[in-house]
Design a binder for these strands. Sequence first.
RNA 1: GCGAAAGUGGCGGAAUUGGCAGACGCACCAGACUUAGGAUCUGGCGGGUAAAACCGUGGGGGUUCGAGUCCCCCCUUUCGCACCA
Length: 863
Amino acid sequence: MSETINITANQPEQRELRYEPQRIEEKWHARWESQPALYAAQPAGYDSKAKKYYVLEMLPYPSGALHMGHVRNYAIGDALARYMWMNGYNVLHPMGWDAFGLPAENAAIKNNVPPREWTLRNIAHMKAQMKRLGFAYDWSREVTTCLPEYYKWNQWFFLKLYEKGLAYRRSSKVNWCPECATVLANEQVVDGCCWRHEETKVEQRELEQWFVRTTNYSEELLAGLDTLDGWPEKVRTMQRNWIGRSEGALVDFKIDGPVSTPGARITVFTTRIDTIYGATSIQLAPEHPLVTELIGNDPALHAKVEELMREQARAKEAGDVAAVEKHGVFTGRFAINPFNQEQVPIWVANYILMDYGTGAIMSVPAHDERDYDFAHKYDLEMRVVILPRRTGEPPASGQPEPPVLPYTAKDSLLINSGEFNELSNMEAIEKMTAFAEQNGFGKRTVTYRLKDWGISRQRYWGTPIPMIYCPKDGIVPVPEKDLPVLLPEKIDITLQGGSPLERVPEFLNVTCPKCGGPARRETDTMDTFVDSSWYFYRYTNAQLKDRPLDTATVDYWFPIDQYIGGVEHAILHLIYSRFWTRFMRDLGIVHNDEPATRLFTQGMVIKDGFKMSKNRGNVVSPDDMVARFGADSTRVYSLFATSPDRELEWQEAGVEGVFRFLSRTYRFVMRNAELAKKNPRGYTYFAPKGSESPRVRSVERKLHQTIKRVTEDFQGRWHFNTSIAAIMELVNELYGAESELVTQQSADLLVEVLWTLTLLLAPFAPFLANELWQAIQAQPTDGLSVHQQWPQYNPSLAKEDEITYAVQINGKLRSHVILPADSPEDVVRERVLADEKVQAAIAGKQVAKVIVVAGKLVNVVVK
RNA sequence: GCGAAAGUGGCGGAAUUGGCAGACGCACCAGACUUAGGAUCUGGCGGGUAAAACCGUGGGGGUUCGAGUCCCCCCUUUCGCACCA
């Protein structure tokens, strides 16, 4: 690269014109460090009259070093922040660290360095990298989640959750990752494996855990998605599926024969009560509490049920639940269908889940694929109770061969269903649910797939849960005045046997706040997703000592105008933080329902077709790119290679191309900077006097077209790849017209071009833009940055004077005709038909039609 | 299996509403300047042809004066969901 070639080093006049990003960037980096407020989009107070804009990128985990995915994410956010800043907005653009988590403990074990030290060291390094890359963050608002100043408020929120009944403790089957040696939330299990250890199967363990009642907000979290039209549809769909709302009914089936509790029933959940006359068995989950009683003392049955249970557990671990073969066993007992008083056999089946609905279903093999498979295998009765109704056709009397469609269309028709015959499916659901309710054996209900959020983690490096267990008083919350519950510094971390905090007596042993007697502290810590559920509120006032946030300040800044991050957080972080916002709203400390009105999910950065990873050896280091090409080239390439929503294949040759473009830009501006200095900016428009060259007018037009294109990309689809391409085109045009542009006659325009070019570059290449901006000022610019004003375009100057019409004969391109832009249609038609090539092509034929598309094309249709 | 998105030169990608396919960049080729070039500048660059014609946006149909774009069928890739009763 250029630094190895130094031919011009002893030629001062040329040396000046060589683009040396390292020199420029070091210079501005130092300046921004000493005067951050002038060069980062640092917002005015929350009482500012200026319109606010809160742009946020997801905060990183301080793993050690930035990777290209970070750089891309922040390059997008930074471009937007700078653009909004130049448009006069009061811009909030903060950054912080999602600093708790397991890697710090692993590093502690491996390298014998305390997690805190490891984490803070990584933060220092990554922060330096961010600054070197020129991201304009307001570091006075930095949030680091592993510091007591922050996690104190996690604990405070936990106490509030507990107070409101939204945090509770219970024993339950939980997901356990043996690699992490801790519990995982449902959201953290992907295909039966740990979200951090994709190869590690999650086990099921029975443990006492703290849960947060996210399900209290199921309905609201779902309904809120409809208001988020600034979010990608994909993310909204994923959240809808995750919440999994399902309307249906609970129906009680009495158990036939003797039972220990008189009147014992099996309650099933169904969304298809209309098919209940086709229910030919009841299926229970192997863990259903009634199973033990129903199968009595038969050891063979017990063994069989246990086998079913194991099959189900294995299937869950394997992740591919649907592919597992259905098995079941008949309990020997029967239940009574409350609609027709029929006896139906009760089975236990491995495909029935205890944690959805009631863990019991009515099996309708004729209208449900799964039930059909099962019934087919065990030769159970199938009864068709619903048919498509065809106009004019009498109800079918014979029974079609199952499987039948789960028929739900408007023209469906019930049969074999007693008094409900002849109803359509939808009518039947209404009437049969009402019937069940009136007769006291059923009721309307809604179930959700969303579960409460298990937040206990048996790890050290997280927020201690502020709870105390007293032998006398039971569970006692730590009083607010005693917060924060500090993490002990000296600790021996291993991955075995429960939380490392259990082995720290001075942490574990406390006195009960109620009775003063000896008590035990909770040793589990909080899921780190608690930290990221509300961090963006803290940015609005990161120094606040006595409260997590100041409501008036939050009211000013929220909701976040633009949130930017990876789609991998579509469910986890983005559903927890939506919950947390509602929880805070109900506490009365914020007033918005949703944290962010717009969400943008950027594509991944890959290399050689794969995600960058150390194992694969295809990692591209940002430091290396910055050292070789500079921060500006690295940033601009990450925006230029493709549009921000798409996957980006990192190609070093592409970075070189961008470097060349920035070099060309640098040289053009610098070698004309003197002219700009001598001629103050006074351009209104370049009035054509008839004497200037068309090339000069062409530059003026291109200038305005470029402003238009870049501005529209910011306002619309964020296709910065085309914005940058547009600026490249402008620079190419300038090179072609330079000799005609540098005359005193065109000085006004040239000065305008230099200014505009510099301003257009500012959101993308801030170092270079500031350098060039400074170079073209007549006066010293101390205390000012390039981000003064976004350039405006003049539509009439952007318009072409002449238009080259494409001329087609029968849809095939045959000629071009140049005409004045404002030519009326009949003139266009006339001139085109008079064209030599057109004449030749239509000779001897009859012109049937001439289609004129104004400003673009003419199609002559001939026979 | 269900759902969504995407398939364009050697490569990354342009082409918001149907209107000149391949902008911009990479790679490559040629020329200029040079002692030199991996610097810089200028030009070329989908296939095909001497030049045309002609063929070209995953494949096959269709609508239209005109289709990368709209409709139908199919193929491939990526992502999401997947016994949710």
